[in-house]
Every structure is written in C-alpha cells, then in structure tokens.
Design a protein around this nucleic acid. Sequence first.
DNA 1: GCCACTTTGTGAATCGAGGCACAAGGTGGC
DNA 2: GCCACCTTGTGCCTCGATTCACAAAGTGGC
Lengths: 219, 219
Amino acid sequence: MAGARRPGAEISDLTAKRLSVYLRSLEDLQAAGVTTVSSQAMAEKFGLNSAQIRKDLACFGEFGVRGVGYVVADLKDQITRILGLTRDRKVIIVGAGNLGMALADYAGFNAGGFRIVALFDNDRGKVGGRSRGGVPVLDMEALPQIARREKAGIAVLAVPAAAAQKVLDLVSRAGIKAILNFAPAQLKARPGVTLKAVDLKIQLENLVFHLARAEEVHR
Amino acid sequence: MAGARRPGAEISDLTAKRLSVYLRSLEDLQAAGVTTVSSQAMAEKFGLNSAQIRKDLACFGEFGVRGVGYVVADLKDQITRILGLTRDRKVIIVGAGNLGMALADYAGFNAGGFRIVALFDNDRGKVGGRSRGGVPVLDMEALPQIARREKAGIAVLAVPAAAAQKVLDLVSRAGIKAILNFAPAQLKARPGVTLKAVDLKIQLENLVFHLARAEEVHR
DNA sequence: GCCACTTTGTGAATCGAGGCACAAGGTGGC
DNA sequence: GCCACCTTGTGCCTCGATTCACAAAGTGGC
C-alpha cells in the first residue's frame, strides 16, 4: 500500500523532528547494508520508546510488516516524501557577519536537498564580496527581487537582534514562508509563516543553569 | 525575604529556558527606563500566558508586589542569580572548521558572562593559528590539561558527526559537565553531564516539512 | 483609617505527549 | 496448510505542562 496519507490528522512538531532523526538513522543503516529494522532496534539506538516510533510512523500510513519490522529502503523513501525532501530547496541567508558567512559555507547546510543561493547585507562594504565557499553577498535591497526570482523557500536570519523583526517582515513580504532565526530576539511572524529560533545564548544560559544547580547540590 | 529558595522543588527545563527569555526582556525594559512590570504586560510582549510567567517565577520565591507587579531591577537580579549567571563561565570549542571558528568570534558567545578561551582541533595544519577574533587553536591532545587549568565549565562541539561521540567522551573525561553539540548525531552522555543539541539540519528539515504541508493544503 | 482597585500566588481543571500492553496480522518451518 | 513466533498498530493510562479562576495582599485616593 503506497502513501495513504490522512490529511485530517494534525502532526505534532515533535513528531516531525523525530522523523528527521529516524531518517538520519535509516541512512546509516542503509549504508551499513541492513535491509530491515524493527522499531525496537531503532528505539535502543537512540534511547526512545519503541511504541513512540511506531506511533510516529503510523501517523502517515502503515509502513511496517508485522513480524518483520520496517524495510529500511522503503521507510527511508517514505519519510523523505513525508518531510517534503524530494525536491531541492533554495535558502537565503540575511546577515553576512561571522555567523552568516560560516553558515553559508557550512557543509550541513549545503547538502541533503538544501542549497544556499545568496547572502544579503546592508553594509555596502560587504556587498559584492563572496563567502569563502563562493556564495555571493548581495545588497539587502535586492532581496525581494532575488528571493522571488530564485524561488527561495527558506530564509536564515543572522542579523543583530535589533534589526531582526524588521528583516523578518521584509523576507515575509518577499514571499518566504519558512524562517530560521539566529538573532537573540523574540520575533512575531504573521500567520502562515513558520518561524523557528535557534537561540545560542539561551542554550548556553540553560547549560549554566544546570551547572549551577549541580554545584549547589554538591555544596 | 531575600532569596527564599526551595531546594526540593525540581525545576523544569522549559521553565529555565523561559527564565532566560524573561531576563532578556527585563534588560530591554531596564534600558528603556521602565521600573516595574506586570506579568500581564510581559505575557503580551511575547505571546505567553501571564499565569505561566507568575508560576515560573514563583518556583523560586515571591518576587512580585501584589497590586503593582515586579520591580524590573530586582527581578533581573533574581533571575540572574537563579540562572547562575553571577560569575563568568569559560567555554572551549572543539572543532576549528567553519562553524567552530565563527562561533568563537560570534559576539553572542563572548558576552553576557561567557568567554571562549580556546578552540581545539586535531588537524595539525590548523593548530597554532587563531580565529579572526584572536581565539587560539590548540591541539586536541592538550584539551584535558587546558580544560582543567582554565577551569572551563562548558564545551561546544563543532566536529563532524562521525567524531562527535568520541569527542564527547574526551571532554567528559576532562571534567566538563555541560556540553552543547552542533554535530548532526545522537550522542549519549554519561550521567551528571548535561548535553544539549543544536541540530541545524533537523531545524531546516522541520521548516521544509511545514512548507510541504502548506503546499499540500494549498493544492 | 477605610475603600476601590490592581496584580500576585496558587489550587483545580484541561490538555497533550509519552508509555504500556495486547489484539491483529504477517513469516518461516515443517 | 498449519502452527509457533515475532512485530506492528493502537486503545487506554499516566504524567507533566499549561491555563483558568479566585482568594490573598498590597497601593493610592480621600
């Protein structure tokens, strides 16, 4: 049975994130020549509950074979399809500072269906240059036009916090519907736009919080 | 009633993350000259429920004044103390590739009580150099010694996925108890070590998932 | 000093995610 | 073809997080 989707079922974001994890694991398994895998085996591999894995997968159809498990190659294809990774996606990065430049060249970003087409900055000194990996730095004013022409679906914000909301509005108006924000600021996206934040400072502070608690108990 | 902590109460990680968000907001308010703020006002500021904010704060004592709200300066100090941000923390970064180098110079990482003392890499070609911002790149073999001498509390992993688990074990053995992992891999930390993952690929894939769903509905 | 008003702190209700346990369904041996 | 065995898919339960709603407590005006 092919791809019997259930359009009504609302998928939790947590489930979607786990699907990415499963996919990565399946790629490893496939590379290792494994052809089938049970939910139990996958669960042990990364400290999850096997029922959870089965439930996550069951959201989208019945991919498993009872008594056997899941066929690695099939499941990989299914998840790839579910996640929408069947076609390439173009990404633009706004902010050509340290972080923006590094992200532009970061291998993890330019693989697996993602391609970074341009960096944007409003600093005339940076415009016209390229990242070490060759991604061009363009003027912010060209963003709407380029974004539409290239059909960029995703924007990464690597700008200072103070500018972030303004830039978010700009890229939203340019028709981009998915945004990854690295700026340390709580932004508001208009409906229909998906906004994810990667807040490094909060992550660090959270680590310190755990450290401080551990020290306290120790005392 | 100064800092009436409740040692028994277990604090959720979600609460701790929100405290960081509150702290940032309080800094803004203080800079803007605001002296008191109500939970209601903060809630509106970033789309949260006011009861949640009050409950988060109530975990650690009674900081508010009924009928008035919270005194911005006091609350800021309290949260700073709760999060353990009263003293500086030294951070090491493992992996001097694009990402590691960028993180070393990233302003958000070298502020607010964090200081990056060194990068480590096992590539002899990189060892001996410095990041643009001046952070030295040292040999991986020196890591345990340097980490202990500098009393580094936090390690950031910016190494390839294949090496990540090994590096995690190494820094754990060096006495580091808090680790931020950027490698796209599911790692296992020993008990007593806090491990947080920032998985950029999963974030991107998650965005694509939302895009794909939106496109589907559109059709 | 008293009262109307505001906002906190918190018990109770609600909601959602994760885990358990088992019936349903498929496989391979004979 | 039948049977013992294995693993999926799923109803039910548990637990924690969020939200609601209200009594308690402080403020400012008069």
